[in-house]
Design a protein around this nucleic acid. Structure first.
Lengths: 234, 234
DNA sequence: ACAAAAGTGTTCGATATACACCCATGT
DNA sequence: ACATGGGTGTATATCGAACACTTTTGT
C-alpha cells in the first residue's frame, strides 16, 4: 500500500491483519447449535474454531464475512450481522490479528457443509462446546447474548424456521433460544396480534394429531418491533 | 511481523490499517453535542472529523481508543463503548483503512481540550453538524441511534451529569437525548423507584426558586435495567 | 378408546400515561 | 408580590402473566 493523497504515510508498523469470523447458529433436534470447523494448521491445529478467515484488501469486511460463509457452506441468503470487533493484543499467537466477528442464523435444512463430509466441520450444541481455538469461546458467548437480547424486539428468531411453519414450531424456536418454556396461549396471542404472520390456508399433518395451521412471514426481512410491541417476555 | 508458530504466513496483501475513532458526546446549553477536530493534513484537510487515529500494533483497540481520547482531551475516567466497525473498501482515499468506532459520554465540565485553544477542536450540536471527513457523518448517526436505544434500558444517560445533580437536571438530560419532553411526576416516580439514586441530604440553591434536592448515583457503573425495569418511555 | 398435539378466553396484577396544584426561595 | 423552578398523587388504560379444557387426527 502506498501513499496516495495523504501527507502521512500509512506506516508498516501500523499494519494489522483483519479477520472475519462467523458464529453461525441453527436449531437442530431441539437445541441451539453453532457451526465449528477443525483447524488443519498451526496454531491450534486440530482444535475446533469458528469459520472465518482473513479479509482481503480488495473487499469490504461484510463481503469477506459473506465469502467465508459461502466457502464453507452453500448458504446464499442469510441473516448476517456484525457482532463485535475483538482486538486484544495477544489473541492470536501469529501476531497482530484483529477479528471482526459476525453472527448468522439459518434453518438447519438450509445448510450444507461444502465438500467436507470428513468431519472437519460440524454442528455443536451450545451447551456442549469443545475447547476452542483463540478467543472463540468468548465470541460465541457474546453472540449468544446478542441473540437472546435481539429476539426480544426483532424478528431474528424467524430465521431459524423454513418459509412455512406452524405456530408450535415457532414457539419451540423461541423456547430453545431463551431456554425457558413459554405459555402457548400467550405466545400465539402475541404473535398473531403483531400482524407479521400470514396464514397460508394449508394444514400440516405430520403426526397422529390434529393438523396445524401453516403460516409464513408477512414481512420479508428482519424488523424491529419497537413500535409494534415487543415479542417477549411473555 | 513475522511468522511465529503458524504454517501460514500473514501475507502483506492481507494487511490493513486499523483506526479507532471516537464519537464523544456531551450535553451543553441544552443540546447534545459531539467533539470534532479539524484535520490539518490530507485527505480532507480543513474538514472536521471525529477524534481518533491509527491503532498501534502493540496496543489493543480499546487501549488505542482511550489513548486517542486522552491525547485530545484531559479526560481520564470515561464511559467508552465500542460501537461498530466500518470496513467499506473505499472509505479512506489513502488506502485500506478499517475504523473501529467507539462512543463516549462526558459531563461537559469534565472536558478540556488539550493544548488546542486554536479552534482545531470544538463541540458541535448534533443538529448543526458541518460537512465531515470520510464516512464520519454516518458513524455519528449510528452512535446517536445506539445512544438513544441504550438510554432506554441502561443508566448511560447518567454519564452526562456531574457526581451530584438534581432530578430536574437528570430529566433535562433525558429530554435532550430523546428529543421529547417528559412528564415531571412520572419521571421522578420512575427514577426514585428504580433505587439507583441516593439522596445526599443537601440542597442546591442556584436560582431564585425553591432549593432542589441533590442526588448521587448509588450504582458506581453503568448498569442494565432489564430486571429492575426500563427507564423510558415515560 | 386413547394418545398427542392443536387450538381457544378470561381474570388479575403491574405498569405506563395523563393530568394540576401548592411550596420555597430570590428579587 | 411575583416569578421561577421544586415537589407531590390519583385515576385510567394497557399489557403481561397465570391458568384448563375441547378439538382433531392417527393408531
Amino acid at each position: 500500500m502506498s501513499i496516495r493523497n495523504g501527507t502521512r504515510a500509512l506506516r508498516a508498523i501500523d499494519r494489522h491483519t483483519v479477520a472475519a469470523d462467523i458464529v453461525l447458529f441453527t436449531i437442530q433436534d431441539g437445541s441451539l447449535k453453532v457451526l465449528l470447523v477443525r483447524r488443519d494448521r498451526l496454531p491450534f491445529r486440530g482444535r475446533w474454531s469458528l469459520p472465518g478467515g482473513f479479509v482481503r484488501t480488495d473487499e469490504s469486511i461484510d463481503e469477506a464475512a459473506l465469502r467465508e460463509l459461502q466457502e464453507e457452506t452453500n448458504i446464499g441468503n442469510v441473516y448476517l450481522e456484525q457482532l463485535y470487533t475483538f482486538g486484544e493484543r495477544d489473541r492470536d499467537p501469529r501476531g497482530r490479528v484483529v477479528t471482526v466477528a459476525y453472527y448468522a442464523l439459518v434453518h438447519w435444512q438450509q445448510f450444507q457443509v461444502r465438500g467436507k463430509p470428513d468431519g472437519s466441520a460440524a454442528w455443536f450444541a451450545i451447551k456442549r462446546l469443545p475447547e476452542l481455538a483463540f478467543d472463540h469461546r468468548r465470541i460465541i458467548d457474546y453472540a449468544l447474548e446478542r441473540l437472546r437480547n435481539k429476539i426480544n424486539y426483532t424478528t431474528v428468531g424467524f430465521q431459524f424456521l423454513p418459509r412455512q411453519f406452524t405456530l408450535t414450531e415457532l414457539q419451540r424456536a423461541y423456547e430453545v433460544i431463551l431456554e425457558q418454556r413459554l405459555d402457548k396461549r400467550n405466545f400465539r396471542k402475541k404473535m398473531l396480534q403483531l400482524g407479521i404472520l400470514k396464514g397460508t390456508g394449508q394444514f400440516n399433518t405430520n403426526g397422529r394429531q390434529r393438523p396445524a395451521r401453516v403460516y409464513t412471514f408477512a414481512e420479508p426481512k428482519v424488523i424491529k418491533l419497537q413500535e409494534k410491541g415487543i415479542i417477549v417476555p411473555f
